[in-house]
Amino acid sequence: MAYSEKVIDHYENPRNVGKMDDADLNVGTGMVGAPACGDVMRLQIKVSDAGVIEDAKFKTYGCGSAIASSSLLTEWVKGRTLDEATAIKNSDIAEELGLPPVKIHCSVLAEDAIKAAIADVKAKRGA
């Protein structure tokens, strides 16, 4: 199967790969996986007091589409509020990257990851 140019670009030059301190109360971590493919994805966001995502990092072990989906998502969420980031749909990612139907689940994984990261930072702050 041929990957789109955008997928290849994110795969070869992934943006925002890295790790943030999970002990930081302003950092939300979303850890998700796709057992059938063996993919695991960690997506982290750092949120300002005003609720704006200042930084995002990810690490994904998986196929090109999973890496590209999470890489793109970290670019998209920076500068957005938590509510705006929550509104991002997997179909937006799939469309931007031109993912074929068999790879849509990779964009779903990325959406699950950002939702989990947002829920995590909200839970930490609520505590």
């Binding site: 850890m31 996986g33 063996g38 695991v40 690490k59 072990y61």
Partner: peptide
């Protein structure tokens, strides 16, 4: 598979193993 079917500790461990 929904994410709630996965054990967070398993995902964490998978990340480390990978």
């Amino acid at each position: 598979v929904s994410q709630s079917d996965l054990d967070p500790a398993v995902l964490f461990e998978q990340m480390q193993l990978r």
